[in-house]
Write a protein that binds this DNA or RNA. Structure first.
Lengths: 338, 338
DNA sequence: TTGAAAGCGCTAACAC
DNA sequence: GTGTTAGCGCTTTCAA
């Protein structure tokens, strides 16, 4: 007789005891058969497996972890409501986790420390094996907590404690990739338009831009243009730049949104792209980069890879091989037409 | 003596037995004290609570659910890698779930039925109390499975089985809101530019547009322009539209990306916005709507609300009050300058 | 090769 | 008021 699996029958589910009874063996034997442990006659194993199949038996992971002490779950706490940055990170993380038969609990802290602590407590009550904290900005953040009973890995936004395990993007490398590309395509008078000076990524990329240019024996055209991460700022800054330095022939932008604004600003000022001026962005945000005219050449920071690495490092830590410190994931240039 | 809570000490965590010992009471008493059950002296309760506090006791949810049969977890299966549409849905769902002390497992099926079934099995093994399936398109999808032991709610993409519980956006209402707004602001010659005819949402919005116009005694200018959900299509279609119907004074676009393309196309053809032509989009995708020139008036489909409703309906179903059928969530107009 | 029994951390009857 | 015991579903000794 087949179990009734109608939606309301959630209460009574088939357990290993049912399988054992059906196969005419003891409970322990059924367990061994299904898990490939112990020494059993092949025929017994087959009989148990058949019974499990027939009854649609699904082992109760929770009961199992009660004994093993491991739940094969991790918590992912994001600070930005699964926005632009955490999404790829989460997807990468899920990738690596699934490979280890693990699954993630989702927690959105909305940048609220109170909420974050609440989630932390709930995750610990559920006995997660570890926690990934996915940030939105590359600025340092305060640690999740001290002396936590499970390992924690910070993705994108590193913890201010250098002994924590952090996986971060290569901000300086991104600037280098962009500058190298501009120089390689013949640009010599290169400017930098970016976001707010208060953002670590804006500052770091600006510094690294100057340094990378120096490596080519070049100087930045004007000062870095700090502003906001908006198209409007990009358009505005482009106009300003053109007025101050009409001979500019390359612009590295702090991100794609700004870069799109810059391309619009330049184009509307009569500059022909990419002939007169080359533009490079950062993020490889398809929606923005592909819609720009011309489509943007940009640096992909490898967010998904950051998620994957974070999950791998977390799993390693769970397995007793913590690797504290700063793990830098390299980005790569995506060449389009700009 | 305080427990060592260093990352590697995950094995031995303080349990309710430790708390009981520390407070000098029996295990059962400690349980009652911490859960507010039974009749205990207030002093005893306090003593137990103090002990729990001191030891940093966190109850093991899994052990608890082993007994209660409920895990207070749900699975969220998304088909689109937490993209544009599932994100707000997930956030809304998490909102409602948290209110019921529930937490969500994250599963990304990437539109792959095999992967989806794999996740389903894993979720059932973990004894989730229910499942939310969050889609990307409003087209119907095949059901997750038949005779599942837990309730399922479909968000955004409804199941093809009308007896399933679906929470969907109000596609026709969105078109009505847009048309009403255009008419109210004095537009009379209104066209419709949208995405691919193969998308249910494009077809439904187009139909409803014609109907809504008829309600005002108006007829659509030309046929609906079906194309793709891209800016380039929006620009192209705007130019075409202008050539065929130079006197058009309003355009309702199938989504914000197309609408942004349309505004660019019109503006670049010398049309002054919003004076000569009014444009309305759908999605209220801030990034796109705010960056457009002028910023887009658009219909917000209430995706977050869809997520919230879905979670509420799921919780109701878990509590034995299933509400099968199609639950339509109303959108609202967000007026900007276009 | 299989079965019986103990126990993972907790709650809920029932005794005292 | 508080302690004792059984048992949730499973794995794992150890005995047969």
């Amino acid at each position: 007789m087949t179990e009734d699996l109608s939606p309301q029958a959630a209460g009574r589910r088939v357990g290993i005891a049912d399988v054992a009874a059906r196969a005419g063996v003891s409970l322990g034997t059924a367990s061994k058969a299904l898990n490939g442990r112990g020494n059993l006659r092949e025929e017994t194993r087959a009989r148990v497996r058949a019974a499990a199949e027939e009854l649609g038996f699904a082992p109760n992971t929770n009961a199992r972890s009660l004994l093993s002490g491991r739940t094969f779950t991790v918590g992912i706490i994001t600070t930005d409501s699964y926005g632009r940055f955490s999404i790829p990170v989460m997807r990468g993380a899920e990738d690596s986790l699934a490979a280890g038969e693990m699954i993630a609990f989702l927690c959105d802290s909305r940048d609220d420390p109170i909420r974050e602590q609440h989630h932390l407590r709930k995750l610990l009550e559920r006995r997660v094996d570890g926690i990934i904290v996915a940030g939105r900005r590359t600025d340092e953040r305060r640690p999740l907590g001290r002396d936590l009973p499970v390992p924690v890995v910070y993705a994108l936004a590193p913890s201010s404690d250098p002994d924590d395990c952090n996986v971060v993007s290569d901000e300086r490398g991104a600037a280098r990739l962009a500058v190298d590309h501009l120089v390689k395509t013949g640009r010599r008078r290169i400017a930098h338009i970016t976001g707010p000076h208060s953002h670590a990524s804006a500052r770091e990329r600006a510094d690294a831009t100057i340094e990378a240019l120096a490596g080519h024996g070049l100087r930045l055209v004007g000062e870095p243009y700090f502003g906001s991460w908006t198209e409007a700022w990009g358009r505005f800054a482009a106009a300003q730049l053109l007025r101050a330095h009409p001979d500019v022939d390359g612009v590295f932008c702090g991100n794609d949104v700004v870069a799109r604004g810059v391309t619009d600003g330049l184009r509307e000022a009569g500059v022909s792209l990419p002939m007169q001026v080359g533009v490079v962005g950062v993020d490889n945000w398809a929606l923005v980069a592909e819609a720009a005219r011309p489509p943007l050449t940009t640096v992909d920071l490898g967010l998904e890879e950051i998620g994957r690495r974070a999950a791998e490092l977390l799993i390693a830590a769970i397995d007793g091989h913590p690797q504290p410190g700063r793990h830098v994931v390299a980005g790569h240039l995506v060449v389009r037409e700009s």
